[in-house]
């Protein structure tokens, strides 16, 4: 763990880390863009998840919705990840041991595995349930897992700033 702490300390003292932590404009601007981008990521994913769960927009084809939602989701995700990474460099040591922050990363990893399983296994039979048919149970569950993970990512993201867990 000493090794990780050393790396985090090095990140924090790098020019990028110093810029993120020392400039009064940098953190406020990064934070503002990060939250706006995250809200678009989660909002877009939630619309698709609600469709998969059969809660809303059931008269839209799943493929059509995915095609519209995903480019915006990924674009906003890149912005959120880039701003998030920059904010991380400013206080790398503290974040790397912050429980809420580690939970946020874990949940993002779970959401990532979930979407891979969905794409490579469940989505292969899409032709049968794209429109006008019930989404198979596995697809509904994947939608629920995704929605739950991303909602929790937002919560843990906020709690990261409020609680400095030991």
């Amino acid at each position: 763990m000493k090794f990780i702490a050393d790396i985090m300390g090095w990140i924090e003292k790098s020019p990028v880390g110093e810029f993120a932590s020392q400039s009064i404009y940098a953190f406020a601007a990064l934070d503002m863009i990060h939250i706006a981008a995250i809200s678009i990521v989660v909002g877009m994913i939630a619309l698709l998840d609600l469709r998969l769960m059969g809660v809303a927009f059931t008269d839209y084809a799943v493929t059509a919705m995915a095609r519209q939602v995903l480019p915006w989701t990924w674009s906003a995700f890149i912005v959120a990840a880039a701003t998030g990474l920059l904010m991380f460099t400013g206080q790398a040591v503290k974040y790397s041991v912050n429980f809420a922050f580690l939970m946020k990363l874990t949940l993002m990893a779970i959401a990532g595995i979930n979407v891979l399983l969905f794409h490579f296994i469940i989505y292969r039979s899409i032709a049968k349930w794209d429109k006008g048919a019930a989404v198979p149970r596995a697809g509904k569950i994947a939608g629920m897992i995704s929605l739950a993970c991303w909602v929790a990512v937002v919560f843990y993201g906020r709690f990261t700033a409020y609680y400095q867990f030991p």
């Binding site: 809200s39 678009i40 989660v42 909002g43 939630a46 619309l47 915006w72 906020r158 709690f159």
Partner: peptide, 19 residues
């Protein structure tokens, strides 16, 4: 932070559904 999270989530739906 709980209210902020709910606020962020609902703003996300506002922006996404309008888009």
């Amino acid at each position: 932070p709980l209210l902020q999270s709910l606020h962020i989530l609902s703003v996300g739906i506002v922006l996404s559904s309008l888009m």
